[in-house]
Amino acid sequence: MSNFLKISGLHAKIEADGGDKEILRGVDLEIPAGELHVIMGPNGCGKSTLAYTLAGREDYEVTAGSVSFKGQDLLAMEPDERAAAGVFLAFQSPVELPGVNNANFLRTAVNSVRRARGEAEMDAVQFLKTVRAATKSLSMQDEMLKRNVNVGFSGGEKKRNEVLQMTLLQPSLAILDETDSGLDVDALRIVADGVNKLRAPDFSALVITHHQRLLDYLSPDRIHVMAKGRIIRSGGPELARQIDQDGYATFLADAA
């Protein structure tokens, strides 16, 4: 199952200030099924770009390389097709949708994905039951369902809402883009719980973070260090602790 997620020589650029800026410069990464991998790296190294590119954001243009996900060409798929195929991105900055009721949004999302996966759509009653169970297991208030998507949510509430969406959409690949940043210990635990509840032989996760703190709750399988648009070092969980103590300087010096 080593071909669960395979990123090979991935290059991507973005249009900025009238010119193209290459951000990913040959990313190679494999995540086998059932594993939880972590990407760490200094600001601007391309971590979020990698996350967005995997989820299919259109303003990042892939110029070379390939991504295969469960045997499919991920880069050829639309963002909604990727969601249906099982890719989920927890946003670093979740987007506000004024006037769009959170419960309605969640149900629309769940049913879109279920339809695409050939599963029966949930009616309002079924959905309410499912969503209530999910909020309860994540120690979240039902009141969040009645509000408009992310509008007026605190930073912590937005992140928890991402975890709720992840729980409901049941992805097979979850990408968490600095979901832990700015969270207090309790919220951190909720995020970790959300991921841990999904862990299964056919579920993998790619966690982007700056901090060892979240990893204390997650028991990752592999740590990757990213710099200047490439993975420059990979190792076991001890690598994260080393970064936490010494910073990135030694890795960057090695890579240079």
Partner: peptide, 30 residues
């Protein structure tokens, strides 16, 4: 309608049409 909003909706499995519909209906809800 921002690209951020469109991408957010689509990354949750909504088609482009459903995403626009949802955002516009939200805008008109009142």
């Amino acid at each position: 309608i921002s690209e951020d909003q469109m991408f957010y909706c689509r990354s949750r499995g909504l088609s482009e049409e459903d995403a626009v519909g949802l955002i516009v209906n939200g805008f008109c809800k009142d």
